Amino acid sequence: MLAFITTFNSLIFLALAGLHAYWATGGTRGLTAALPAHSTGAVVFQPGRGMVWAVAVVLLVLALLSTAHLLPASAGLPASWLRATDWAVAAGLGLRVLGDFRFVGLNKQVRDTTFAHLDTRYYTPLCLVMALGFVGLALAVRL
Protein backbone atom coordinates (compact mmCIF):
# COMPACT_ATOMS: atom_id res chain seq x y z
CA MET A 1 0.00 0.00 0.00
CA LEU A 2 2.90 2.36 0.78
CA ALA A 3 4.25 1.90 -2.75
CA PHE A 4 0.84 2.68 -4.27
CA ILE A 5 0.34 5.87 -2.24
CA THR A 6 3.87 7.04 -2.96
CA THR A 7 3.62 6.30 -6.67
CA PHE A 8 0.17 7.90 -6.98
CA ASN A 9 1.16 11.11 -5.18
CA SER A 10 4.48 11.32 -7.02
CA LEU A 11 2.92 10.88 -10.46
CA ILE A 12 0.23 13.47 -9.77
CA PHE A 13 2.79 15.98 -8.51
CA LEU A 14 5.07 15.29 -11.50
CA ALA A 15 2.20 15.75 -13.95
CA LEU A 16 1.19 19.00 -12.28
CA ALA A 17 4.80 20.22 -12.25
CA GLY A 18 5.03 19.50 -15.97
CA LEU A 19 1.77 21.31 -16.62
CA HIS A 20 2.98 24.36 -14.71
CA ALA A 21 6.30 24.28 -16.62
CA TYR A 22 4.27 24.22 -19.86
CA TRP A 23 2.31 27.28 -18.74
CA ALA A 24 5.47 29.04 -17.55
CA THR A 25 7.02 28.62 -20.99
CA GLY A 26 4.06 30.28 -22.66
CA GLY A 27 1.58 27.44 -23.11
CA THR A 28 -2.05 28.40 -22.71
CA ARG A 29 -4.04 25.20 -23.13
CA GLY A 30 -6.12 24.52 -20.01
CA LEU A 31 -4.92 27.66 -18.28
CA THR A 32 -8.31 29.34 -17.99
CA ALA A 33 -9.76 26.20 -16.40
CA ALA A 34 -7.02 26.30 -13.76
CA LEU A 35 -7.56 29.88 -12.61
CA PRO A 36 -10.34 30.81 -10.18
CA ALA A 37 -12.73 33.37 -11.64
CA HIS A 38 -15.45 35.74 -10.52
CA SER A 39 -19.01 35.03 -11.61
CA THR A 40 -18.43 37.58 -14.37
CA GLY A 41 -15.72 35.33 -15.82
CA ALA A 42 -12.83 37.63 -14.91
CA VAL A 43 -9.97 35.67 -13.34
CA VAL A 44 -9.24 36.36 -9.69
CA PHE A 45 -5.50 36.75 -10.36
CA GLN A 46 -3.12 36.37 -13.27
CA PRO A 47 0.12 34.77 -12.03
CA GLY A 48 3.37 35.82 -13.64
CA ARG A 49 5.83 33.37 -15.18
CA GLY A 50 8.08 33.52 -12.13
CA MET A 51 5.22 32.50 -9.86
CA VAL A 52 4.21 29.68 -12.18
CA TRP A 53 7.82 28.42 -12.27
CA ALA A 54 7.95 28.58 -8.47
CA VAL A 55 4.80 26.46 -8.24
CA ALA A 56 6.30 23.97 -10.72
CA VAL A 57 9.44 23.66 -8.58
CA VAL A 58 7.42 23.19 -5.37
CA LEU A 59 5.35 20.48 -7.05
CA LEU A 60 8.53 18.74 -8.21
CA VAL A 61 9.94 18.86 -4.68
CA LEU A 62 6.70 17.36 -3.35
CA ALA A 63 6.99 14.54 -5.90
CA LEU A 64 10.53 13.86 -4.72
CA LEU A 65 9.46 13.99 -1.09
CA SER A 66 6.79 11.41 -1.74
CA THR A 67 9.25 9.24 -3.70
CA ALA A 68 11.74 9.35 -0.82
CA HIS A 69 9.53 6.86 1.00
CA LEU A 70 10.45 4.16 -1.53
CA LEU A 71 14.19 4.70 -1.43
CA PRO A 72 16.45 2.73 0.87
CA ALA A 73 16.57 4.37 4.29
CA SER A 74 14.33 7.15 2.91
CA ALA A 75 17.21 8.64 0.91
CA GLY A 76 19.17 9.45 4.06
CA LEU A 77 16.49 11.79 5.38
CA PRO A 78 15.88 11.63 9.12
CA ALA A 79 12.62 9.78 9.77
CA SER A 80 11.37 12.55 12.06
CA TRP A 81 11.94 15.14 9.30
CA LEU A 82 10.21 12.96 6.73
CA ARG A 83 7.22 12.44 9.02
CA ALA A 84 6.99 16.16 9.84
CA THR A 85 7.03 17.11 6.17
CA ASP A 86 4.38 14.48 5.41
CA TRP A 87 2.13 16.02 8.07
CA ALA A 88 2.85 19.52 6.74
CA VAL A 89 1.94 18.52 3.17
CA ALA A 90 -1.19 16.74 4.41
CA ALA A 91 -2.18 19.87 6.33
CA GLY A 92 -1.54 22.10 3.32
CA LEU A 93 -3.62 19.89 1.06
CA GLY A 94 -6.30 19.69 3.74
CA LEU A 95 -6.48 23.49 3.87
CA ARG A 96 -6.78 23.51 0.07
CA VAL A 97 -9.73 21.12 0.40
CA LEU A 98 -11.47 23.47 2.85
CA GLY A 99 -10.72 26.37 0.53
CA ASP A 100 -10.67 30.12 0.82
CA PHE A 101 -14.44 30.44 1.43
CA ARG A 102 -14.86 32.34 -1.83
CA PHE A 103 -13.41 30.73 -4.98
CA VAL A 104 -11.69 27.45 -4.03
CA GLY A 105 -12.49 24.28 -2.09
CA LEU A 106 -15.50 22.82 -0.36
CA ASN A 107 -16.59 26.15 1.11
CA LYS A 108 -16.45 28.24 -2.06
CA GLN A 109 -19.25 30.70 -2.75
CA VAL A 110 -18.65 31.23 -6.48
CA ARG A 111 -19.89 28.01 -8.08
CA ASP A 112 -20.95 28.98 -11.58
CA THR A 113 -17.60 29.23 -13.39
CA THR A 114 -15.62 26.65 -15.34
CA PHE A 115 -12.99 26.57 -12.62
CA ALA A 116 -15.60 26.13 -9.88
CA HIS A 117 -17.18 23.16 -11.65
CA LEU A 118 -13.80 21.52 -12.21
CA ASP A 119 -12.77 22.32 -8.63
CA THR A 120 -15.87 20.60 -7.27
CA ARG A 121 -15.58 17.58 -9.52
CA TYR A 122 -11.80 17.02 -9.74
CA TYR A 123 -9.41 19.43 -8.01
CA THR A 124 -10.79 19.34 -4.46
CA PRO A 125 -11.40 15.55 -4.37
CA LEU A 126 -7.89 14.96 -5.72
CA CYS A 127 -6.43 17.18 -2.99
CA LEU A 128 -8.43 15.24 -0.39
CA VAL A 129 -7.16 11.87 -1.66
CA MET A 130 -3.59 13.13 -1.73
CA ALA A 131 -3.90 14.64 1.76
CA LEU A 132 -5.10 11.30 3.09
CA GLY A 133 -2.23 9.65 1.24
CA PHE A 134 0.27 11.87 3.02
CA VAL A 135 -1.39 11.08 6.35
CA GLY A 136 -0.85 7.42 5.51
CA LEU A 137 2.78 8.07 4.61
CA ALA A 138 3.32 9.98 7.86
CA LEU A 139 1.85 7.13 9.88
CA ALA A 140 4.01 4.60 8.01
CA VAL A 141 7.31 6.35 8.80
CA ARG A 142 9.18 4.41 11.43
CA LEU A 143 10.85 6.66 13.99
Rank of each mutant, 00 (worst) to 15 (best):
G99Q: 02
Y22V: 04
T114N: 13
T67S: 10
A140F: 06
T7C: 06
P47L: 09
G76K: 07
A33G: 14
A140E: 03
R83A: 15
A54R: 09
G133A: 00
G94N: 06
V58N: 00
I5H: 01
S80M: 10
V43L: 11
L14P: 00
A88Q: 11
W81M: 12
L137T: 00
R142M: 12
A116Q: 11
H20I: 03
T25C: 13
G48W: 02
P36A: 15
L128M: 07
V58A: 11
R111S: 13
L11G: 04
A84V: 07
L11I: 09
G48F: 01
A56S: 11
R83F: 03
G92Y: 01
V129I: 09
L59V: 01
Y123H: 08
L118C: 09
L60R: 01
A21L: 12
P36S: 14
T114I: 13
A42V: 08
G26F: 04
M130Q: 01
V61R: 03
D86Q: 10
A91Q: 04
R102S: 12
P125I: 07
W81E: 07
L71W: 10
W23V: 05
G76M: 05
G41T: 12
W53I: 09
A56H: 00
W23P: 03
A88K: 09
C127A: 15
T114C: 12
K108F: 02
L139W: 03
W53A: 13
L62N: 08
L2E: 10
A54F: 08
S74R: 12
S10F: 05
A37V: 13
G105A: 01
F8P: 10
F134P: 00
A91L: 15
S39I: 10
T85I: 15
L31P: 04
A138V: 00
T32L: 15
G133Y: 00
N9F: 03
